[in-house]
Simulated scan of single mutants.
Amino acid sequence: MKCLSCKNGNMEASTTTYFADLKNCIIIIKKVPCHKCEQCGEILFSTSVAEKLDVLMDKAEALASELTIMEYDKIA
């Protein structure tokens, strides 16, 4: 699939580190599955991964201290 951002690169299966700056904390989730453009680095999450990230953010915001680092494959 071609990149929606640069229109030139191909999107390849990969993983990334997801950062979220919430009201009371910063969340870092490592090893999140994604598609990444080989040329510009644009990241695209599948619908199921995006939905899981939303759920994780809601849970993490309620439980987290100032900084939380998690691994996707261990919490999703």
Rank of each mutant, 00 (worst) to 15 (best):
M1E: 09
K2S: 06
K2H: 00
K2P: 00
C3E: 07
C3M: 07
C3T: 07
S5R: 02
S5W: 01
C6F: 05
C6Y: 03
C6I: 12
C6V: 12
K7T: 10
K7S: 12
N8W: 08
N8M: 09
G9M: 07
G9I: 03
G9D: 04
N10D: 11
N10T: 15
M11G: 03
E12P: 08
E12F: 04
A13C: 06
S14V: 04
S14T: 06
T15Y: 15
T15A: 12
T16N: 05
T16M: 03
T16Y: 00
T17L: 05
T17M: 04
Y18G: 04
Y18M: 06
Y18C: 01
F19V: 11
F19Q: 08
F19N: 01
A20S: 13
A20Q: 07
A20M: 04
A20T: 05
D21K: 11
L22N: 02
L22W: 02
L22Y: 10
K23V: 11
N24C: 03
N24G: 11
C25T: 08
C25I: 07
C25P: 03
I26G: 06
I27V: 09
I27R: 02
I28L: 09
I29Q: 06
K30P: 11
K31P: 09
V32Q: 00
V32S: 02
V32T: 06
V32N: 03
P33A: 09
P33K: 14
P33E: 03
P33T: 04
P33Y: 05
C34L: 11
H35M: 14
H35K: 13
H35Y: 15
K36A: 14
K36G: 05
K36F: 12
C37W: 07
C40P: 03
C40V: 09
C40F: 02
C40Y: 01
C40K: 08
C40H: 00
G41V: 02
G41S: 06
G41L: 06
E42W: 00
E42K: 08
L44P: 01
F45N: 01
F45D: 04
S46K: 10
T47N: 14
V49S: 02
A50C: 11
A50L: 13
E51R: 09
E51W: 08
E51L: 11
E51D: 10
E51P: 00
E51K: 08
K52V: 01
L53D: 03
D54N: 14
D54Y: 13
D54V: 12
V55Y: 13
L56E: 01
D58E: 10
A60Q: 04
A60V: 06
A60R: 03
A60L: 09
A60W: 06
E61I: 06
E61L: 14
E61R: 14
A62W: 00
A62V: 05
A62L: 07
A62C: 00
A62H: 05
A62I: 02
A62K: 07
L63S: 15
L63P: 05
A64W: 06
A64R: 00
A64Q: 11
S65M: 12
S65R: 13
E66Q: 08
E66C: 05
E66P: 00
E66G: 12
L67R: 15
T68H: 05
I69V: 15
I69W: 08
I69F: 12
M70I: 10
M70L: 14
M70G: 04
E71Y: 14
E71Q: 12
Y72M: 00
Y72H: 05
Y72P: 01
K74Y: 13
I75G: 01
I75Y: 09
